[in-house]
Nucleic acid binder design. Structure first.
Length: 476
DNA sequence: ATGTCC
């Protein structure tokens, strides 16, 4: 995208002025190089989102944005139901409530040399990873309903975790107002054996070291110190979320004419919030959020089992769990007036600032932990939400490095085995069922996560707290 | 992202 085609507000904020069908401007948070590297498709998609009914303030993209199905990945848009606002399945994405959680381990850098290779082998053996992986839980109809209604709470009750974990999860581990009955039988069938599995694509479980602290006071509130060993888990709602997304995209596309919606792009499927279909989607999506929260909760407990076996002194406590593919009802102050908005974040992380009532007590003074997963073999970041001077993407930040290259092109450019050897040479142990998957996820196929996070911080979206480097990566 | 095409 040519930066000179945008209005430059400052070095990290760019605007597409409203024209044609746009109801609000488009705003990009990125430096000039990141804007320049973005596909023109991102601009086109941002313009389309800005044209949807009931959109409030602006359509936003984060510095890691790239083009996606309908909405850009790295996009944020909020809609007002009172003003004809819509909910969009494409604005959430296929992997509903895909997200990241970070666990303390109680271990330090010096504990790793004797453990690293056994951790890699045992985590890989114990945690189902890859396309179509199945777990040790098999849900019957009643179990499925309870899981979709209960989220991480459902998982913790029989022992997949600790009650204290729930305080450290967005929505306290359970999305309210789910409608399990709005999830199709087919979606439920796909999920029957997939709880507690990592999946494939960009999903992973990593053991990492805290390399550098940027904000000592906030790091202390988060319980992070230099040299700490932590675990990052990145995954979502597996087959169920994908099936829900697929079915509602189709239904919303078909129903657009009867809702009086003229879609700027066929892929931009949406429905009025105040419609039967809009409400059914919201209920099904919230159930899928609970599926993702339960899934990450079970994976947490599986990780604890491995650490308990290899290193009984380890104590895996949850730092936080964030989702980056959601639509949530939140109150935001617009022109001095509080309004209830349906905030879509697709490849974007919620980043509530200090004092927000929804934050756990331990983090209320410093702001929400914002967990940014890098690409395989590169850094991850912990950030914190800022107190908002105004409305900046409705308290949102980036979610990761963001792809810079298609999977197809990555496959032509790298070989999985060779990447794994190279990473081993740099002290990073990768275990994966698919060397093709590893090639698709080559670090070089992603943007520079450090540059993305620098831009997010400079744009005022969140502030850097800690920089982490991987030592073990279980790759789906 | 995804039983990588019902």
């Amino acid at each position: 995208m040519n930066p000179s085609s945008l209005t430059r507000l400052d070095d990290f904020t760019w605007r597409i002025e409203p024209s044609g069908r746009m109801r609000v401007p488009g705003v990009l948070y990125a430096n000039e190089a990141l804007v320049g590297a973005m596909d023109d498709k991102v601009r086109e998609q941002l313009v389309n989102v800005a044209s949807l009914p009931g959109i409030v303030q602006a359509a936003y993209v984060m510095p890691d944005a790239h083009w996606g199905y309908g909405f850009p990945i790295g996009g944020v848009a909020a809609f007002d139901a009172d003003r004809g606002g819509v909910v969009s399945a494409g604005g959430v994405g296929f992997d509903i409530s895909c997200g990241v959680r970070c666990l303390h381990t109680g271990l330090k850098r010096d504990d790793l040399p004797s453990l690293q290779s056994r951790l890699a082998d045992e985590l890989y053996r114990h945690i189902p990873a890859g396309v179509g992986s199945r777990g040790r839980i098999h849900l019957d109809e009643a179990g499925m309903e309870a899981m979709l209604a209960g989220g991480a709470e459902w998982a913790v009750a029989p022992g997949w975790g600790r009650p204290a974990d729930l305080e450290r999860i967005e929505e306290r581990g359970r999305m309210t107002d789910p409608r399990p009955e709005a999830v199709s039988d087919k979606a439920k069938r796909r999920q029957r054996d997939e709880m507690g599995t990592l999946g494939s694509g960009n999903h992973y479980l990593e053991v990492q070291e805290v390399e550098t602290l940027h904000d000592r006071a906030t790091a202390e509130a988060f319980g992070l110190a230099e040299g700490d060993v932590v675990v990052f888990i990145h995954c979502g709602s597996r087959g169920l979320g994908h099936q829900v997304g697929t079915e509602f995209l189709r239904a919303m596309t078909l129903a657009a004419p009867e809702h009086g919606l003229e879609l700027p792009d066929r892929e931009l499927a949406c429905a009025p919030i105040r419609s039967e279909l809009g409400q059914t989607y919201l209920g099904a999506m919230r159930a899928a959020i609970n599926c993702a929260l339960a899934n990450r909760q079970i994976l947490t407990q599986l990780t604890r089992e491995v650490f308990a076996e290899l290193c009984p002194s380890a104590d895996l406590r949850l730092l936080f769990d964030v989702s980056h593919n959601t639509c949530k009802v939140e109150e935001h102050v617009i022109d001095g007036q509080p309004r209830r908005l349906y905030v879509h974040r697709k490849g974007a992380t919620r980043a509530f600032g200090p004092g927000h009532p929804d934050l756990p007590d331990a983090y209320r003074e410093v702001g929400q932990p914002v967990l940014i997963g890098g690409s395989m073999g590169t850094a991850s970041h912990v950030l914190a939400g800022n107190r908002q001077a105004g409305i900046q993407a409705f308290a949102s930040a980036c979610h990761g490095a963001g792809r810079a290259m298609s999977r197809r092109r990555a496959l032509k450019s790298w070989q999985g085995r060779q990447l794994i050897d190279e990473l081993r040479g740099r002290g990073i142990l990768v275990r994966s069922p698919s060397s093709k998957g590893v090639a698709e996820e080559a670090p070089g196929a992603y943007k520079d996560v450090d540059a993305v996070v620098d831009a997010a911080e400079a744009a005022g979206l969140a502030r850097r707290v800690a920089w982490l480097l991987p030592r073990v990566c279980i790759k789906g």
